[in-house]
Nucleic acid binder design. Sequence first.
DNA 1: CAAAAATACGATTATTTTTATCCGAATTTA
DNA 2: TAAATTCGGATAAAAATAATCGTATTTTTG
Lengths: 135, 135
Amino acid sequence: MIKLSKKVEYAILALQYIAENSSKTNTAKEIAENLTLPYEFLSKLLQTLMKKGLLVSQLGVKGGYKLAKQISEITVEELMNALDERSNIVDCADGDSNCCSRTEICDIRSPIMNLQEQINNIFKNTTIANLKNNL
Amino acid sequence: MIKLSKKVEYAILALQYIAENSSKTNTAKEIAENLTLPYEFLSKLLQTLMKKGLLVSQLGVKGGYKLAKQISEITVEELMNALDERSNIVDCADGDSNCCSRTEICDIRSPIMNLQEQINNIFKNTTIANLKNNL
DNA sequence: CAAAAATACGATTATTTTTATCCGAATTTA
DNA sequence: TAAATTCGGATAAAAATAATCGTATTTTTG
């Protein structure tokens, strides 16, 4: 619980890899091999990032991916939003007021939402570029 | 992802309930009924909290649970530790240096650990008493 | 133009984690 | 001794996560 999914973890590594090799287009295969990540899974994930505007892709031979924006401009929050629908720490944090049977008497909702915001702020204030050693 | 487990959610509600009824011992059944939580599940959970020293239990008829310490003295971090083994956002954050094949070249480990600490601080600075409306 | 190297996309499967339940034993009170 | 309760182990069900498969489409290159 309270953990990053493999998707997010792999994506961070992949984005950093692409950033380091920004002079060329990087194929999913090459990235997977160099980072020792499952190709098919990574491939899906890159496609998602492309659709969400974090990557630009080129089809066909000589195809691959490039960054659509600098990794210093991509926050962890943005990445998580791109890869997963929700990042709510509790179900009712997403605005569904009838998420649980005790909604009317639920005393913890608003303070939990506050916790949520604090966590979001951390992810909002951390970029993919920040998540690297030896800066 | 990045969400509180039901265990933690139910435990927060239960601890607050017990705090509000601290003059008596509260049975798992009563708590479950009043909060509309699954009895068996809650029951297990309370037993765990007892073993971890957050609750005191009394066996037999007239048995039940009481707080072992004030909810203003129980942090969310303490509760999560009591209920779940780990609260690491990534697997390798728990000190296992061979958790992934890319450990030696993994650039993101230390910054991720930093993220981890920031999140832990939030949970460390929030008590169960804090997680209540209208304080 | 044909073959090869890629991404694109939908479906499906496998694995793990989370949530929930069942049952029998031990304890305490009345 | 019966009832109400916690205790503890095992198991099951459900959900989420992770991974794979197969096929189509696009593009380059020989």
